[in-house]
Structures are given as C-alpha cells and as structure tokens.
Amino acid sequence: MSDCSSLYSDCSSKELEDELETLGWYHYDLSRHATEALLLSNGSDGSYLLRKSHEGPNFLAISVRAKDSVKHFHVTRKGDGYSFGFNEFPTLRDFIEHFANQPLLGSETGTLIMLKCPYPRRVEEPSIYESVRVHTAMQTGRTENDLVANAPSLGTKEGYLLKQGAIIKNWKTRWFTLNRNELKYFKDKMFEEPIRILDLTSCSAVQFDYSQEKVNCFCLVFPERTFYLCAKTGVEADEWIKILRWKLSQIRKGR
C-alpha cells in the first residue's frame, strides 16, 4: 500500500476535465458491493475511499472500514463546492485538507469512526502466476452450459440476535442469516438446518421496538405474528433494520 500521506496520484501536465480524477483515492464507478469486498479484504480499520454514489450525479460517497464492516456516507457536490455532514467546502482542496487534518466521523447512531488512511486507486500487484503443467485427463461430464457465473446476492447479512419466544416470552440467542428474500434463524452457527425461514415477501414492516425491557430491539411484522429481536448494540440493530427495510422496498418495487 502506498504512503498514507500521499493524497494525490501522479497527474499529467494537462488539466483534467474533473479535478476529482487527480485524487489518488477516488475510485470512480466502484460499486458499493465491490467497495465493501475491497476494504474488508485488503484494507484495515480506518481505510477509506471516495467513489460515485448511485443516488445521482451530484452525490459522492465516502466508504470507510470500521472494524469488521464498511460504512458509507454521502458527499454532495454543490457547484464547485462540496457538502459533507454539517461542513461546507468551497474547493476540492479544502475538502481534502479536512480529511488530512480532521479524519473523524460520527454516525447517526453516535458511534465515532476514525478515518485513518485513504485507500489508493492504484495498488501494485505482485506478478506471480502459476505455470500450467498439464490439463487433467479426468472428465467431469460438464459442458460449457454448466459454466454459469454465480455470486451471493446483494444485501446479505448474518449474525447473532436475541429472539423472543412465541408462547413463553423468554429470550434465546439465535444465529440469523439474510439472503435474498429469506431471513433464517438457527439454534447456533454450526447448525445446517434452520429452525424457521421467514419469507420477507409477507413482511409488512420492520421498525425499532421500545415495548420490551431490553434495549436495541426491533420487530418484524408478519400477518400471523410479530417477531421481536434484539442486537448487542444500537449500531448493529440499526444495520439490521436498514438492510431489512431495503429488502422490503425492493420487494415492493418488483410487485
């Protein structure tokens, strides 16, 4: 990784159309999903980068790795200036100096996130390639039609949550996985068979819940039952609520 103090990449002598392109940690059209994979795989706590936001041409996004997750924050372009949170920056240089001298960020849940080091757009890769000795003579019986590209769907999440029982109102720790439109919960992480699969296409609402004695609780409303869940922290509960609400919005768009 390049030196963190080097905020600019090498620029050509001609003036670039967009001054953002002179910024070594601006990653153009890198998607949110690819950003998370990049920072979680190669970055460290406090690594961050700037990229375009899918919200529109006047929006950028600061993505920062905070321990084992990646947080995203909007930057708004207003004319020649930039707006970030409560701060207004008349020029890109002012914006960059802010991140050089005040690399702190507070989220809406009150957590302080440290921006320590910009993640460079250009990273040297080792030139190491394995040599191919011989193709195996073993036949698999597969054809080119079987070579279908596949990847986990966007918006996956997993983790431990406390769940309230349906009849006996006690709380038990369960392992939850969110994939596509299914929220599954298991007795523990090592179990393969889920206790139950919740079909989010039948869910009408996801919201914080303050009716329980515990904190950091939220609920999922289904026609036959409301499920009450609690996370360890308010940040974690907020993350679950946001991604579940996003799922519901996508389901409604598809109807």
Results as ranks from 00 to 15, higher is better:
102 Q>R: 09
158 E>Q: 10
223 P>W: 02
57 P>H: 09
136 T>I: 14
188 D>G: 11
209 D>I: 07
146 D>S: 11
101 N>Q: 12
7 L>T: 02
152 P>I: 01
12 S>N: 08
228 Y>I: 15
233 T>H: 07
130 E>I: 11
18 D>L: 08
159 G>W: 03
67 K>A: 15
115 L>A: 01
126 P>V: 04
207 Q>A: 15
203 C>L: 08
73 F>Y: 10
170 N>F: 09
127 S>E: 10
67 K>Y: 13
200 L>H: 00
102 Q>A: 12
128 I>W: 05
98 H>K: 12
69 S>L: 09
152 P>T: 00
6 S>P: 00
102 Q>L: 12
160 Y>A: 07
151 A>T: 08
245 R>P: 02
112 L>E: 04
114 M>G: 07
219 C>T: 14
218 F>Q: 02
49 L>G: 10
225 R>M: 01
22 T>W: 01
44 S>D: 09
254 G>A: 08
193 E>I: 14
126 P>L: 13
246 W>E: 08
17 E>G: 11
253 K>R: 10
29 D>K: 10
183 L>Y: 00
196 R>S: 05
168 I>K: 14
89 F>K: 04
112 L>Q: 02
126 P>S: 02
233 T>N: 05
63 S>F: 01
119 Y>N: 05
213 E>F: 02
176 F>M: 05
151 A>G: 06
98 H>P: 11
86 F>G: 08
182 E>M: 11
202 S>F: 08
82 Y>I: 12
58 N>Y: 06
172 K>I: 07
134 V>I: 08
104 L>P: 00
71 K>A: 11
188 D>Q: 13
250 Q>T: 05
83 S>A: 13
159 G>N: 04
22 T>M: 14
107 S>P: 01
231 A>L: 10
205 A>I: 08
